[in-house]
């Protein structure tokens, strides 16, 4: 059983307060949507939770069976998909998948790669350079990378950004598949996206 504890978290950039006093605790099987107007700090909160930014106040803890996970360990449990997270354009989709699995410390077979690409609707495009992909295809490939490690914590920032209807359905299916076995956080303004989550945290 895993949990994510966000305790009294606040973030400031200089004099400007982005958000403060964010509190919630999630357990495996929980999902939460972080919603708010543009500039309210949804992506910033996600980055703080992902330890990509240091909180100005408060703590974020990743816990496995009452043991707080260290920085290096919890990263092996999380996956993140976002429009501003880029893959390597000068590598093919397959090379990207092999690289991210190896660098994360595990081996992925050709069969698993094909299955992942098929899952996100990119079958037959694995040998293409990512620079030749459309923005929607790149977004789909990010999901394939995210699912490489079967994450215990799945973070999605604007999850259906750049995707067509088929792509959106793939994302909804992925969220449904991981709903019971993962903790899911979604930062969004789209109703159909925050409806995927059980609870909502609203930033003002």
């Amino acid at each position: 059983m895993y949990s994510l504890k966000v305790e009294d978290v606040g973030k400031r950039f200089g004099e400007r307060k982005v958000f403060s006093k964010i509190n919630f605790e999630l357990f495996t099987g929980d999902s939460i949507a972080i919603v708010g107007s543009n500039g309210s700090g949804k992506s910033t909160l996600l980055k703080v939770i992902l330890a990509l930014l240091t909180p100005s106040k408060g703590v974020v803890q990743y816990i496995e069976d009452q043991t707080v996970l260290s920085d290096d360990i919890f990263r092996s449990y999380i996956s993140f998909v976002s429009p501003y997270l880029n893959l390597y354009d000068h590598l093919t989709a397959e090379e990207n998948l092999i690289f991210f699995s190896t660098v994360a410390g595990f081996h992925v077979t050709g069969k698993e790669i094909n299955a992942l690409l098929e899952k996100v609707g990119l079958e037959g495009r694995g040998m293409d350079y990512v620079m030749g992909y459309s923005s929607g295809m790149k977004q789909r490939l990010k999901y394939a990378v995210a699912l490489l490690k079967k994450p215990e914590f799945l973070f999605l920032d604007e999850p259906t950004s750049n995707l067509d209807d088929d792509g959106k359905k793939i994302v909804f299916d992925i969220v449904e598949e991981y709903r019971s076995s993962s903790i899911i956080l979604i930062a969004t303004n789209e109703k159909e996206e925050y409806d995927l989550a059980k609870d909502i945290v609203r930033l003002t």
């Binding site: 501003y84 660098v103 990378v145």
Partner: peptide, 13 residues
Amino acid sequence: ETGTSLILNLTAE
């Protein structure tokens, strides 16, 4: 510059 440092940061030790 290519925005790949984010995913590298999250994935690699």
